[in-house]
Design a binder for these strands. Structure first.
Length: 110
DNA sequence: TCTATGACTCCGG
DNA sequence: CCCGGAGCCATAG
């Protein structure tokens, strides 16, 4: 076991830190990790997070606030359903008032 | 070792 | 934000 977390483990930690009713983006997480990795790796890490039900992957969306990864959930409607249950309004797979709902780890965890 | 892939993002038009 | 193209890099086979 390494003392320092792997890339996807860091992503998992960030995802767990996202407050209820808030969302973040792949790019924000990638940037928080030092821009050393591209946003695609964050998405890949979330794919690994799929095995861990404690990771709120539904709170991670792309930079436009669109639920790009909804098809990766058990049900296509599960992702938006979870977000709606947390008080987030979603129209046409896109988060409304995304600029308000957005939670930036670079600002909150700094 | 190399190739393909992807839940992304930036850039120009 | 629509469209096409390029960059990005860990993981799988």
């Amino acid at each position: 076991m390494k003392d320092e977390l792997n890339f996807y483990e860091k992503v998992h930690e960030i995802a767990k830190l996202v407050p209820v009713g808030r969302v973040t983006t792949y790019g924000a997480i990638a940037k928080f990790l030092g821009t050393a990795s591209s946003a695609r790796m964050v998405g890949w890490a979330m794919n690994a997070a799929h095995a861990d039900s404690s990771i709120p992957a539904h709170r991670v969306v792309n930079r436009l606030g669109i639920l790009t990864g909804k098809h990766h959930f058990a049900a296509p409607t599960l992702m938006e359903d979870l977000l709606v249950s947390e008080g987030i309004e979603i129209i046409d797979n896109q988060i409304q008032d995304f600029n308000i709902k957005f939670w930036d780890p670079n600002l909150e965890l700094k």
